[in-house]
Simulated scan of single mutants.
Amino acid sequence: MAQAQMTETGNDDGNGDGRRGARFRRLWHRLRTDRGIWRRGIVLAVLAVLLGLLMALHESVPNRVGNFGSLLETFLPWLGVLVPVLLVLALVRRSATALIALLVPVLVWTDLFGGLLSDKTAEGGGDLTVATHNVNASNADPSGTARSIAAAGADVLALQELKASAVPTYENLLEPTYKYHAVVGTVGLWSKYPMSGVKAVDIRLGWKRAMRATIATPEGRLAVYVAHLPSVRVKLRAGFTARERDRSADALGDAIAHEKQSRIVLLADANGTMNDRALTAVTSQMRSTQGAVGSGFGFSWPASFPMARIDQIMVKGVKPVSSWTLPETGSDHLPIAASVELTGDGE
């Protein structure tokens, strides 16, 4: 009886394989004899090529009208979402032309962002852990936010969008972890190591949203900049309004270029991504820790559904080791952190 059952099962498997083979042969014959397979989907193919060109030539998209180039670069990785949409449409249309054309945006997207999908975290913990967080002036729970970021274990912590009435809360709750701190305008810096040379950095706003300090770490001195560049808005008629942000980025880049310390860390809510050409004054001379040693895109805003990494940790004369995003607090931004290795003499 058992042998008969095994034989019967074997026949079922054989018949199943035969049926699948027959279906494949019929499908292949249908495709091979379908003379319209190359003619259909021409519009989809054109759209696929244009999508690839838009990603590849994003720097050539002009900013003259509504700063569209910067808007595109802020959400550039998300253009990849259009690829599976075009793929489904190409399959529905049974268009070989569209399927082949899809290779263009796939290859371009992979070249631009494929490296971010791998884990580039180096072995070892680094010499120093830094973190930055826009705590949101409208934060309904500054106490909870302060406790959360204190528990993250950073040696140096920067906060942006500090509301004057909430500053004492952050100072009191962070004091047990950080012996040294300074607040300049709406930004602040907390450190486990001695801090000196604290001063405001003029980013052409008329009020204080950037500062600079020297941290005396066990491995030497480190210049730390904290900045909150102006917000940008997407308006129906004006487009991507970012002129104030762009001017501030230029001023911040100029300050960093004239920094005397050879080791620099920038902890910022940049209100822009590393792809945004408007931040070139800063990004051209500093490395993003997320791009160098992160895992994934590290999106930080908005906290409820992160779509862009507008909060940045950048370094110069310092070796990034790892980079990550911290859990959500009461803010509309996610905190981000990085571990770095201090190299050189720091003078």
Rank of each mutant, 00 (worst) to 15 (best):
N275T: 13
V282F: 02
W301R: 04
M274R: 10
F299A: 00
R237I: 12
G294C: 03
R243K: 13
P302Q: 07
A278T: 11
T241W: 12
E259Q: 15
G298K: 04
T273E: 00
G291H: 03
A281E: 08
E244L: 11
D269H: 08
G298L: 04
T214M: 12
T289I: 10
G294Q: 03
T241L: 15
E259F: 04
Q312P: 09
H258R: 15
F299T: 01
G317E: 10
T283K: 11
G317Y: 11
M307G: 07
A249D: 00
T214H: 11
M314E: 05
T283A: 13
A268W: 04
D276E: 15
M286F: 07
A216V: 08
E244D: 13
A249I: 02
G272W: 00
G298V: 03
T283N: 15
V234G: 05
G239D: 12
T241D: 15
D254W: 06
P230R: 08
E259D: 14
R233C: 04
Q312W: 08
R233Y: 13
A292F: 09
S295Y: 13
Q261C: 10
E259A: 11
S231Y: 14
D269R: 05
P302G: 05
E219W: 13
F240T: 05
F299E: 00
R243Q: 14
A242M: 09
N275K: 11
T283L: 09
Q285H: 07
M314W: 03
N275A: 14
M274G: 08
S300T: 15
R233G: 08
T289G: 05
A249M: 01
P306G: 07
M274K: 07
K235Y: 11
E219Y: 10
R247K: 13
S262K: 15
A249K: 00
R245P: 00
V282Q: 01
R245V: 01
Q285W: 03
F240C: 07
K260A: 10
A227K: 02
H228G: 06
L252V: 02
R237D: 12
V232K: 11
V226Y: 01
D269C: 06
V265Y: 06
D254I: 03
G272C: 04
A292N: 10
K316F: 00
V224K: 04
A255R: 10
F305H: 08
N271E: 12
G272Y: 00
E259P: 07
D250W: 06
R277I: 11
A308P: 03
L236Q: 11
E244A: 14
Q285F: 04
V226H: 04
Q312V: 12
H258T: 13
S295K: 15
A281Y: 04
R237W: 12
D254S: 13
D246A: 12
G239F: 11
S304D: 15
A255T: 09
S304I: 13
I264L: 09
V265E: 05
G296K: 09
A303Q: 07
P218N: 08
P302V: 09
Y225C: 06
T280S: 15
L229Q: 02
G220L: 08
